[in-house]
């Protein structure tokens, strides 16, 4: 599913070169639930951006679903983001002017799906996250947990290869956070590959595999003791 070889990312800040990722190698298989942890500046966000095809690596290879994407740019990357990746952000990132349903329809809009099918699939995705009764509400009429569920529905609606979640519970209370994690687990059980970036060990522990980053390198990569939980 995801194959990363010798992946490096170097930022230039003035004269100084910052090595955000140093020759990282990583394989993630279909159906895995992986957490990425690490202190800030460890390179986990950079990896997340590259995995999500929002950013391009300086060196190395990145295969997503057997497609080499490290060389792609612009519209080609946009198409990959649209078709292969579902994003869930810490700050939800919903369009405030549009209803929940319209937000969920958005990825299909850019995929060129016909309005009728768009609506049907959006309604279905809203059902999956348990928000069938909130479809026509605007984001500001929804609670944080509900907003994040809309975001998950939006991430799912194009049947992406991976679901990328960046601190999805960071802005939520414990109860809502647990609900969101339950949804991720349920989706993973149903076969979705989930990659989760977090700095909370309890959240990370829900995943079967936890990868620790430090200084742009993988420090630790292990299966959790709670591996059975997902199964």
């Amino acid at each position: 599913m995801i194959k990363i070889q010798d992946l490096s990312k170097i930022y230039k800040i003035g004269e100084i070169e910052v090595h955000a990722l140093k020759k990282v190698n990583l394989h993630i298989e279909v159906g895995e639930f992986t957490s990425i942890m690490g202190p800030s500046g460890s390179g986990k966000s950079t990896l997340m951006n590259i995995l999500g095809c929002l950013d391009r690596p300086t060196n190395g290879y990145y295969y997503l679903d057997d497609i080499r994407v490290d060389q792609m740019k612009g519209d080609a990357l946009a198409a990959i983001r649209n078709q292969k990746i579902g994003f869930v952000f810490q700050s939800f990132n919903l369009l405030s002017r549009s209803s929940a349903l319209k937000n969920v329809e958005l990825p299909m809009l850019y995929a060129g799906v016909k309005p009728k099918e768009r609506r049907e699939r959006a309604i279905e995705a809203m059902g999956k996250v348990g928000l069938s009764d909130r479809m026509h509400h605007k984001p500001n009429e929804l609670s944080g947990g509900q907003k994040q569920r809309v975001a998950i529905a939006r991430a799912l609606v194009n049947n992406p290869a991976i679901l990328l979640a960046d601190e999805p519970t960071g802005n939520l209370d414990t109860k809502s956070g647990t609900e969101i994690m339950d949804i991720f687990q349920k989706l993973n059980v149903e076969g979705t590959t989930v990659i989760l970036v977090t700095h909370e060990p309890e959240i990370a522990a829900i995943a079967r595999r936890v990868i620790h980053f430090r200084d742009g390198e993988i420090e630790d990569d292990h299966e959790t003791s709670k591996a059975e939980v997902g199964l």
């Binding site: 946009a78 983001r81 994003f87 369009l95």
Partner: peptide
């Protein structure tokens, strides 16, 4: 800007 970022992350192309 944020809206543009969201749209692009979700797959909006240059032309869109």
């Amino acid at each position: 800007t944020k809206e543009i970022g969201i749209r692009k992350a979700i797959g909006a192309k240059y032309k869109d």
